[in-house]
Nucleic acid binder design. Structure first.
Lengths: 112, 112
DNA sequence: CTGCAATATTCCTTGACAGGAATATTCCTA
DNA sequence: TAGGAATATTCCTGTCAAGGAATATTGCAG
């Protein structure tokens, strides 16, 4: 798993930017407005996101349209797969436990 | 989504610790050994992971057993759900596009 | 070509954080 | 009870990242 994805998302403003971009591409000014950021800070955060590969940019005259890149998220998703494996195991363990309980239920309760 | 999960994972050693813990609980010394860390640094990273809720600890005499907590990962998983939604949309768009292509294929090519 | 709008970059300062070294704490065993 | 093992904490230092302010860059309308 690529660390830079985590570092990029580990900053509140950047996380919000990413979530804004879920609804479609936005321009720097838009983002600055909606997040109450000054333009330079917005640019800087977008630069970080760009370097981390979380967004891509398309110039259109004066404006720059920033758009989410899905690949890092898919990568994150794939990484989580392993962890899903673990919690499935635990669910299996729970299953087993419940089965044992059921078996005990069939025999009369063994409490002294 | 909770930012502290990202910040905690945004450090190489900590990410490796988490991945080590996938195979089961470990003690501080174990982790320090496997990661070539000095004991205090291991302790400190584990402290951060603990505060972030990514691990839990169970004291057993001298030793402390650190164990993964799954909840933050499930939370991350849930968060990703939205993004999965997006890439499904795009797949749908691709489907549509391919359908159109197919339709065009039926008619003779309209190139001037 | 002048000026304005949109964006990027630079410089500066401040605060957070990681690693090193030393020390404190707790528990076990002889 | 003394000492050693396992772990946590503290203090110090250097590095890096974020925000502010100012400035540079690019594109367009007049």
């Amino acid at each position: 798993m690529d660390i830079t994805t985590f570092s990029a998302l580990a900053e509140p403003h950047r996380l919000r930017i990413v979530e804004l971009l879920l609804d479609g591409p936005l321009t720097v000014g838009d983002i600055a407005d909606r997040l109450q950021l000054r333009q330079p800070q917005a640019s800087k955060h977008l630069r970080v996101l760009l370097d981390a590969g979380l967004v891509e940019v398309h110039a259109e005259a004066n404006r720059r349209n920033y758009k989410l890149r899905l690949e890092p998220f898919q990568q994150l998703d794939a990484w989580l797969e392993t962890y899903r494996g673990v919690w499935d195991e635990r669910l299996d363990a729970l299953d087993l436990y419940l089965q044992k309980l059921r078996q005990k239920d069939i025999k009369p309760t063994g409490k002294p």
